[in-house]
Amino acid sequence: MDKIKLYGKWQLEPLNLPHAVNGIVPKNERGRVDVWSEKCLPPGTVHLRFPKAFSVAKRLEIDYAPAMIGFEFKNGRSYPVFDGIVVCSEFKDVLLEAYAEEEERRQAEEKKRDETQALSRWYQLLSSIVTRQRLNNRYISNSLPSEMPTGGQCINNESSVTVSENYDKNHNVRHQQQVDQCDITSLDASLSPPVKDHEHVFLKELESFDRETSLLTKRCQCGFSVQVEEL
């Protein structure tokens, strides 16, 4: 029975790759090194697989070649797969040290950025808490007069109430009327008597401002006053 040769003798010869000389990595016609296994590395070279190894080698101006480790098949076509770089053995330690320094610097910058963002968020949170507490103390705890609309009218979702002013010629009368959430604490009738359907006019010269409480007091000539908060 005749024997059929499946391989040529040239295919059974030991792999003879060129050596790295003067820090230059021998590359194939595509400018890369096919690393099917560690035995496929040219003598005098190493395969480095840490992230962004090519950028470190390029920054240090060290000659390198992309390491092609195989193929992947997508949509009926094959595409080369690269993993790391191939450099001369004498540059291995230099590249690893440079990568460690760059990684440490990157982690320090990332930590600083995270701390800055955390401080900013804490500041926003504390500012909101302080503002909320200040508003609660001013409008709830201290029960300060609420803001009144012009014209002495208080309007809610259900009704509209007009506070009328009563005047007694012989006595000063304090008239207080509370409707829903609107509260007019006092009306001083010691000044000129109000006229029916009187429209309040708040003159600039009668205004007063309290810097501690940031409250602006507006007064009408009839004695009616309104306090509003200046932001």
Rank of each mutant, 00 (worst) to 15 (best):
S89M: 05
N137Q: 06
E103P: 00
C88V: 11
E115G: 01
I129Q: 00
I85Y: 11
R132K: 11
S143G: 01
S120P: 00
Q107N: 15
Y123E: 11
K92W: 08
V86I: 14
S143Q: 00
V86H: 07
V81S: 11
R113E: 01
L125P: 13
S89A: 04
R113G: 07
E101A: 03
K112V: 00
I155D: 07
Y123H: 14
L135M: 13
W122R: 02
P149V: 15
Y99I: 05
L144Y: 00
N136K: 14
L135I: 06
N142E: 10
F91T: 15
A98V: 06
E103G: 00
V87S: 09
S89Q: 02
V94W: 00
L119C: 13
G151T: 03
T131V: 08
R105N: 13
N142G: 04
R106H: 09
E147L: 10
S146D: 10
E110D: 13
Q153I: 03
I155P: 05
E103C: 03
D93K: 09
P145W: 01
P149E: 12
K112R: 13
E110F: 01
V130C: 10
Y139M: 02
Q153K: 03
L135R: 06
N136S: 15
E110C: 01
W122P: 00
P149R: 05
P80Y: 11
T150A: 09
E90Q: 13
S78K: 04
K111Y: 13
S160W: 05
P149L: 14
T116D: 02
P145N: 05
V81G: 12
V94L: 11
Q124R: 15
N142C: 07
R134L: 10
W122S: 08
F82D: 15
V94I: 08
D114E: 04
N136G: 15
V81L: 15
G84S: 00
V81E: 15
D83W: 07
E90Y: 12
L126P: 02
Y79N: 07
V86W: 09
T131G: 09
G151N: 11
Q124V: 15
L144N: 07
K112P: 06
N137H: 01
P145T: 00
G84N: 07
V94D: 04
A108E: 07
A108W: 05
R105T: 12
Q153G: 01
I85A: 06
A100G: 06
D114S: 13
I85W: 10
C154H: 10
S89I: 11
D83V: 12
K92P: 09
A100M: 06
K112Q: 15
I155M: 07
E115H: 07
S89C: 03
T116W: 11
L126N: 10
N137W: 01
Q133L: 08
R113I: 05
W122V: 09
E115N: 06
L125D: 13
Q133T: 14
A100K: 06
E90N: 10
E147H: 12
C154G: 06
G152K: 06
L125M: 07
D93C: 02
K92H: 04
Q153H: 02
N142P: 03
S128D: 02
E147D: 08
F82A: 12
S146A: 14
T131I: 14
F82C: 10
I140E: 10
R134P: 03
E103N: 03
V130P: 04
S146E: 03
Q153W: 08
T116F: 05
S160I: 07
I129L: 01
R121E: 12
T150P: 03
P80L: 12
S143R: 01
I129V: 02
A100Q: 02
